[in-house]
Nucleic acid binder design. Structure first.
Lengths: 139, 139
DNA sequence: ATCTGTGCAAATAGTTTGCATCCTC
DNA sequence: GAGGATGCAAACTATTTGCACAGAT
């Protein structure tokens, strides 16, 4: 079952009705491997109102079908949650390019922190900032 | 030498002149152990214009005297950079409380990722989201 | 005297909300 | 037919910019 089918099912269970705007946002996210911003989604879906993009993303986030990636002060991107797929991001400080990576050792270390903390840790984000290969060439 | 003295010196070297607004922002940050938002700084310094708060934070960030902590979609906080002191944050999803932590194993793991990557990694952020002890009690 | 730093107000960018209308159930 | 879903426009929040003036060198 694809992510978009799951999403549709979960939304249905949660009592949401089917609508064109949400379906389009979901289809777009289905085709993305990594994070996209709300405004990018909006501009790629001219038939969908901006407010609907934000509303849909909020709903999907609450149902844990999507999660936020905070990239800089301003830019916030969203990507779908695929069970079993868990990655973090490197962002190029020059061109803004976002590159996913995963690292088991890092996950273990984070899990270890959660164990020892008073917090009940629910989720985590890791962001590496640096210069991507392409921008390194440019000097 | 205190952080604020270092900051003053570094700003001077960089060709900045001394001004009242920047001095007050720096003094406020000197007294903070963890991150504060631009708006909080603004409201605690009524004599300083909001624009000056943002300008000062931008300058301090460029001189690596301060760095951003991205906490949620909206909230961005700043804290001073103390050489030798490097910590990350847990944020409570209920009350927004920010709690610093440090973990050598986590740092090693992150360093390891940087080694293997094509990116030239300059800095990193880790954020754990969860429920703080106080909010756990409230149910 | 010069030229930077500052405060104010206006502009901007991203996001949220109000509301009339459309569409699903 | 009732009530949620949607688009539009207005409201809001955080941040940035333009500009005249005060203040540092």
């Amino acid at each position: 079952m694809s992510w978009s089918e799951q999403a549709a099912g979960r939304l249905n269970e949660a009592g949401f009705r089917a609508g064109a705007a949400r379906r389009q946002v979901i289809e777009l996210l289905e085709g993305e491997h990594c994070a996209v911003t709300a405004l990018e989604i909006d501009s790629r879906l001219p038939a969908v109102g901006r407010a609907s993009v934000y509303r849909t993303l909020e709903q999907l986030e609450q149902l844990d079908l999507v999660h936020r990636v905070d990239v800089g002060a301003d830019v916030v991107a969203f990507e779908r949650n695929d069970p079993g797929e868990h990655h973090h991001h490197m962002v190029c400080v020059r061109c803004g390019r976002l590159v996913p990576f995963e690292d088991p050792a890092l996950e273990r270390a984070i899990h270890g922190v959660g164990e020892g903390a008073e917090f009940e840790v629910l989720s985590h984000d890791v962001l590496l900032r640096g210069v991507c290969p392409r921008c390194q060439e440019k000097g």
